[in-house]
Design a protein around this nucleic acid. Structure first.
Length: 510
RNA sequence: GCCGCGUUGGUCAAGGGGUUAAGACGCCUCCCUUUCACGGAGGAAUCACGGGUUCGAAUCCCGUACGUGGUACCA
């Protein structure tokens, strides 16, 4: 029996800006799987497309992972035994493997210009060809080392004609992929094209790079989005040619996260359109200056974000929906990952956050909330009394920023009290009542909710006004609207001065 | 067009030959509260369609439809 290899998984994003929630979910599944199996989680940066370089994007990815608490064990930043972890720094490595493929006759040089390729597709389309790809049907009609003589090929290379290296895919081979979520998937190489392996600029394409790196980094399980399934035959072929499929990681193609309404994959634009975040954290495009909203800044707790993401395509079968990270690690299994894509539901996402706001001690997020308050112009300190107030109102909050609305009245007089809510029952009797009440309050020696309420209640009986109506009016005077915790509790907290001031201020408007 | 993957309520989904087809979100009604929220109690799906297989199918097979992904010198 061969010794069990230790589990190694990787997340390999392209640093092109913004980390999509689908990407975070892929990280999460990688992370959970690794931790569950005592393995390593590697972050590899796939920056082979130099035309898509975006300033700050790589740092942003680290920041997102840090916020989510999904720290890699190896990465460009912290290093590891299998570096470098940035593909742009491994350029020479890929070249040697591409050369091996050429020598073995599994790949070839192609000198076709972009214009040539465009024309090829036009021709194929015009002739009604089933395939519009650069494949076994067409390659012998193109300009490559298969159609050119060895001398001609060498001459082109010598004189610097730009070229790419393509994989030579022979038709008719049935490839089998044992996918962890989809089971046995068969693929016919007849429909696979001669993918570019090395670009004209000397950089590898994703296809060559994943295979080489997964091998060199000893990756045992490779998780990625379902959009990669169609190109899986290319990867399997490369494994066959280069390292043998015994060493190939076990694949898992994760279901996609789709738009809540229309069709298609969820994109950042959907978030902008429908008013919810799609990226983990705020992302500012360094070129356009455009800011894209993130879950963190919207007021999500990382625990809730992870929890919500985990339940998008996975469940443990028990019906439990709230999981801490420890529980997720304990219960996670790839066997229970759903096959079908899921439409993203922001309402449900907020529900998860609401649950986490309840179950988390306010001390853990009061600092963030205090910053929101200060940004809103309400001076607060992140101290015990602030936390006590947050605790009183947290059940009404779905995102952290909701605290501004639900606790703001403790710090700020209502700007425009909802007079219309008072008017219907307002009259001389109520006016007289509140005038008396203010006097009572001003002279109160014991400023506690119970005493205040008793006083107000007795006064209502004395003056024959309905206490219920009084309570509602007082609420609007203190809060500004029909909302909030017990009204006398509010009075107790905001104190004598603010209470009387707010009552008088509202009465002046009636 | 071609190729792949998928299809249980508005959404996330459990269930994988015999169930009153779980649960959650959202929605609606009621209770609690003369507010809001929380918390309770209820309400609304026969499993895309058509054929099989079987005593029996949401569950297995085959078609069809629909959705979705890919079809780049992007990942």
């Amino acid at each position: 029996m061969e010794q069990q290899q230790s589990v190694r998984v990787r997340f390999a994003p392209s640093p092109t800006g913004g980390l999509h929630l689908g990407g975070v979910r892929t990280v999460l599944f990688n992370y959970l799987f690794a931790k569950k199996n005592g393995g390593q989680f590697i972050l590899r940066i796939e920056d082979t497309d130099q035309t898509r370089f975006v300033e700050g994007a790589e740092q942003y990815i680290y920041d997102c992972l840090t916020w989510c608490g999904l720290q890699p064990d190896e990465s460009p930043l912290q290093g590891g035994s299998y570096g470098p972890y940035r593909q742009s720094e491994r350029k020479a490595i890929y070249k040697t493997y591409a050369d091996k493929l050429i020598q073995a006759g599994k790949a070839y040089y192609a000198f076709d210009t972009p214009e040539d390729l465009e024309q090829m597709r036009e021709t194929l389309k015009a002739t009604g060809s089933a395939s519009l790809q650069y494949d076994h049907h067409i390659r012998m009609k193109m300009k490559n080392s298969l159609t050119l003589s060895a001398d001609e090929t060498n001459e082109h290379i010598q004189k610097g004609t730009p070229y790419v290296i393509r994989l030579r895919v022979e038709p008719g081979q049935i490839l089998v992929l044992d996918d962890m979520v989809r089971g046995r998937v068969e693929m016919d190489t007849t429909f696979t094209d001669d993918k570019v392996l090395m670009k004209a600029d000397g950089m590898p394409t994703y296809h060559l790079a994943v295979v080489v790196d997964d091998y060199l980094m000893k990756i045992t399980h490779a998780f990625r989005g379902e959009e990669w399934l169609p190109s899986a035959p290319v990867h399997v072929l490369l494994w066959q040619h280069l390292f043998g499929t015994d060493a190939m990681p076990q694949w898992a193609h994760l279901p996609l996260i789709l738009k809540p309404d229309g069709h298609g994959k969820l994109s950042k634009r959907d978030g902008d359109r429908l008013g919810f975040p799609v990226y983990a954290m705020n992302w500012k495009d360094p070129v356009t200056g455009d800011m894209t909203q993130g879950f963190r800044e919207t007021g999500f707790l990382p625990e809730a974000f992870n929890n919500m993401l985990a339940m998008l395509g996975w469940n443990d079968g028990s019906g439990q929906e709230i999981f801490s990270m420890e529980e997720l690690i304990q219960h996670f299994s790839m066997e229970r990952v759903h096959k079908a894509g899921a439409k993203f539901d922001y309402e449900k996402a907020k529900w998860f956050n609401h649950q986490w706001i309840q179950k988390t001690n306010v001390n853990e997020y009061s600092k963030i909330v205090a910053e929101y308050f200060n940004k809103e112009g309400m001076t607060v300190e992140n101290n015990t009394s602030f936390c006590e107030i947050l605790d009183l109102v947290k059940e009404r909050c779905h995102v952290l920023t909701d605290f501004i609305e639900h606790a703001g009245y403790f710090y700020q007089d209502p700007a425009t009290p909802d007079i219309d809510a008072i008017r219907p029952k307002w009259g001389a009797d109520k006016k007289q009542y509140f005038e008396t009440l203010v006097t009572h309050f001003q002279n109160a020696s014991n400023w506690s909710a119970e005493v205040l309420e008793q006083d107000a209640k007795h006064l209502a009986t004395e003056q024959s006004v309905k206490f219920g109506e009084i309570q509602l009016m007082l609420r609007v005077m203190l809060v500004g609207k029909k909302a909030g915790i017990g009204v006398f509790q509010i009075a107790e907290i905001i104190g004598k001065d603010a209470t009387c001031r707010r009552i008088l201020h509202t009465m002046n408007q009636l």
